[in-house]
Design a protein around this nucleic acid. Structure first.
Length: 480
RNA sequence: CGGGGCGUAGCGCAGCCUGGUAGCGCACCUGCCUUGGGCGCAGGGGGUCGGGCGUUCAAAUCGCCCCGCCCCGACCA
């Protein structure tokens, strides 16, 4: 097993994250107060970019956006036994309103299966009403014991899709279709490779028949669940009496799905790409893709440089940083911290030579390019950065994925080697989807992340805990 | 709820042990100067030292009590 290059983002990753990436208002994506997020301009613009990409795909697959109430009667939650059991500990409950004790308390939505189930029951009567494909962009509250900016906050923003279908087959297709949409956005927009897989029964969503997820690896080797898609079976259909008459004239409960991604994606992206200098954003989500910094000394230079800079900035759609009273150096650092993929420099020297200097945020490499054709060069460089970021992350994932053939070997691989490297690896081993196996892995402070949809190697083998035959290896890792 | 730590200027901190009228860096304001990777110099504004009580001639500093925050563990997108 080769020593991985990710130790610099090891145990002390939280400190790095806090001090470097989120340092005060230097990078200004967000801050946290009382476990809740304040997302500032730079961070929110990233979220908007993700929303655009996701929403376009939801629409393309026939979904409609709707909005449902924030406050849900507590009794709704109680209709599905597993659901209420899973969410009870983290509910925020409203018991007083309008100065009076409420007859029935409301919960602030931790997720909307129940209230949407309530409305589905009113709206669905016939097979002709199906499938019903709904998405909601909203905030939710989950009272977690421990919060971490972007990764786990009391309140977070997300999208939750909720669909109802006439058959289980069709519902399952939807579950996998949306999982594919998430993987597509993660890999092709966020430049973050993911593993698609099925959660074990112990790890599934409370109230689901089965849960699928995409799992990503952060720079320190820890896993992060980046999106989930649930097959709800008829559990909520039965709980909320969502019945329809099928083509044969018989009554049946609908088959439902739900799926979501959250503002955690922003954190995932930061921890996948950023470095000690601050944010590194993939061009496709970067709020500002290119900035041009003009450089001049004297007044006569100033007007000539600014005129040329303004023209070039307009041509390539870059932001012109013409702030007075800031040195060029200060401006370079400013944009570097904020993760702007490309920063261009234009000074008297370039004016004379007809060139412009172009610097990549990801590699730090500078190139001198002719002003002629820069409008085509910048997009090409942005594409290249996007591709290189993905490739680097993929390589990191591959290099830190190892195979184990016994439980001892798993333990050995996951054992913290040093303070920096807290066992941050993906371990592939044959394991059965059995609570005993999940429990055994938890002893190493790790979890079975998923049973990959695509067999990554070798095929069948014997479970390293129960000895039973299983058809493929699962992903085991420590996680955020 | 356990185990640690911290509250002093907008932010980050020193001062506390050994009480004596509050300081540094960054940021901010003014002027000059500079600008190809955080310019420099000079001047300036800004603080009920988390709160209360006590000890003392005198408390940021010592004692007691409260309050708040952060980190680590248990819960999780």
């Amino acid at each position: 097993m080769a020593e991985s290059p990710i130790t610099a983002r090891g145990k002390d990753f939280a400190t790095w994250y806090q001090d470097v990436v989120l340092a005060g208002d230097m990078a200004e994506p967000a801050e946290i107060v009382k476990g809740c997020m304040v997302i500032r301009a730079n961070g929110y613009a990233v979220w908007e970019a993700l929303q655009r990409e996701l929403d376009a795909r939801f629409k393309a697959t026939g979904h409609q956006n709707m909005y449902f109430p924030l406050l849900i009667p507590k009794s709704f939650l109680e209709k599905e036994a597993e659901h209420v059991e899973g969410f009870s500990p983290e509910l925020a409950v409203v018991t007083i309103a309008g100065g009076k004790e409420l007859e029935e308390p409301y919960v602030i939505r931790p997720t909307s299966e129940t209230i949407i189930g309530h409305f589905f029951a009113k709206w669905i009567h016939s097979w002709r009403d199906l499938p019903l494909l709904v998405n909601q962009w909203a905030n939710v509250i989950r009272w977690e014991l421990r919060t971490r900016l972007f990764l786990r906050t009391t309140e977070f923003l997300w999208q939750e899709g909720h669909t109802a279908h006439a058959t289980h087959e069709e519902a399952l297709e939807e579950v996998l279709r949306m999982l594919d949409v998430y993987a597509d956005v993660a890999e092709n927009v966020m430049a973050m490779p993911v593993i698609k897989g099925l959660k074990t029964q112990s790890e599934k969503f409370a109230g689901a028949v089965s849960t699928y997820s995409i799992e990503a690896m952060m720079q320190n080797g820890l896993a992060l669940q980046a999106g989930t898609s649930h097959d709800l079976g008829q559990n909520f259909g039965k709980a909320f009496d969502v019945k329809f008459q099928n083509k044969e004239g018989q009554l049946d409960y609908v088959w439902q799905t739900s799926w979501g991604v959250t503002t955690r994606l922003i954190g995932a992206m930061i921890m996948t790409h950023s470095d000690d200098k601050g944010l590194v954003l993939p061009p496709k989500v970067a709020p500002t893709k290119a900035v041009l910094v003009p450089i001049y000394r004297k007044d006569e230079e100033r007007s000539a440089v600014l005129e040329a800079a303004s023209k070039i900035a307009t041509d390539i759609g870059a932001k012109l940083d013409d702030r007075e009273g800031q040195s060029p150096g200060a401006k370079f650092y400013h944009w570097e911290r904020r993760g702007v993929p490309v920063v261009l420099e234009l000074g008297p020297r370039d004016l004379a030579s007809g060139n412009v200097v172009l610097k990549r945020r990801d590699t730090g490499v500078k190139e001198v390019a002719p002003q002629q054709g820069i409008a085509a060069r910048v997009p090409a460089v942005l594409d290249r950065i996007q591709a290189d970021l993905f490739a680097a992350a993929k390589q990191r994932l591959d290099e830190n994925t190892v195979y184990a053939n016994s439980i001892e070997e798993v333990e050995d691989i996951l054992r913290p080697v040093s303070a920096e490297k807290g066992g941050g690896r993906f371990v592939m081993a044959h394991m059965k989807d059995d609570a005993r196996c999940d429990a055994r892995i938890k002893e190493f402070k790790a979890t079975i992340r998923c049973i990959p949809l695509v067999d990554h190697c070798e095929g069948p083998g014997k479970c390293i805990v129960t000895g039973e035959s299983v058809d493929r290896r699962v992903v085991i890792a420590k996680a955020y």
